[in-house]
Simulated scan of single mutants.
Amino acid sequence: MHKNEEMYGESIEFYDIAALPHSNVNESILKKFARMTDMNEGVIVDIGAGTGRNIMELAKYTPTKELIALEPSKYMRISFMTRLVDNQEMQKKITLLPLSIEEYNFEEKISGILCMGVLGHLNENQRLYLWNTLEYNLQSNVPVLIEILDKRFLSMNKGKRISVSYQGRLRYESYINDIKKIDSNKWEWMIAYKVFDKDKLINRIESPMYWTYNSIESILEELHDIHFRGVKLSESLLLAKKI
């Protein structure tokens, strides 16, 4: 994976509050995905669960399912665990494991896979390893919900503010300070996070973010090659099933 782990140490405070306005997964999509998992036996696995937002939201619509969250980043897990300890119901339903997909053993039956915002951290060989792992371990008709980077982020102007959110009297803003292509489909962003108390800047952090971009169409083609049928839900979401 790209070395984003050190970046999370400083920016984890901003991760959820900055991402909130750009969530691509709405309630209707998660409910549809939940209904699809109900048709299969087994646990739901979230690959690269991050701070837990997606899987905890999904858990609301899957009352009979156990959920497994895989998250190798210790910073992400700290944020995730904070969410879990404040919600006893979720704490009973969700198991958070400090593992990557390469380390997970797939000993249990799987009824659904979440793969949200993970592909950009993988190079081509790692991505193909992921597909082959799913093809080998999943039964037919197990749904896989996949989120990729929205293509619009590749053409944003430097200095553009990409989010603004509020926490009490504080205003959290994030900006793209720089963006450059470093390989055929690899990109580097320099993200600036700023915190204001009214108009006074009280905190500022710059963090690099490295990302590999692959279009929905190219991902669907890769999945088709390993016998998955997929459908494009939006410019950044697709749903696939093993045939």
Rank of each mutant, 00 (worst) to 15 (best):
M1V: 13
H2I: 15
K3C: 09
N4P: 05
E5G: 07
I12W: 00
I12H: 00
E13H: 09
F14C: 02
D16R: 01
A19Q: 02
A19S: 08
P21K: 08
H22G: 13
E27W: 05
K31T: 05
K31Q: 12
M36V: 08
M36R: 10
V45T: 06
D46N: 06
I47C: 03
G50N: 01
G50Q: 03
T51P: 02
G52S: 09
G52H: 02
N54S: 14
A59C: 05
Y61D: 03
P63Q: 10
T64Y: 15
E66D: 11
L67V: 04
I68H: 01
A69M: 03
L70I: 07
P72M: 04
P72A: 10
P72C: 11
P72H: 09
Y75C: 01
M76R: 00
I78P: 05
I78N: 11
T82A: 13
R83T: 03
R83H: 11
R83W: 12
L84T: 00
D86S: 13
E89S: 14
K93S: 05
I94M: 10
T95G: 07
L96M: 08
L97A: 03
I101K: 02
Y104G: 02
Y104Q: 03
Y104I: 03
F106E: 06
I110E: 00
I113F: 05
C115I: 03
G117A: 03
H121K: 07
L122Q: 04
N125K: 04
W131Q: 07
E135W: 04
L138K: 00
V142W: 01
V142N: 02
V142S: 01
L149M: 12
D150R: 07
K151L: 13
R152Q: 15
R152H: 13
F153T: 06
S155E: 15
N157Y: 15
N157L: 09
G159A: 10
R161L: 13
S163G: 08
Q167C: 12
Q167K: 12
G168I: 02
R169I: 13
L170E: 08
E173D: 12
N177Q: 14
K181Q: 15
I182G: 07
S184Y: 11
W187N: 03
E188Q: 14
E188N: 13
A192W: 02
A192P: 01
Y193S: 03
F196D: 04
D197H: 06
D199K: 14
K200Q: 08
T212Y: 13
Y213K: 07
Y213C: 07
N214H: 12
S215K: 01
E221S: 15
I226E: 06
I226M: 08
F228R: 02
F228I: 05
K232W: 03
L233I: 08
S236N: 14
L238D: 00
K241W: 14
I243N: 14
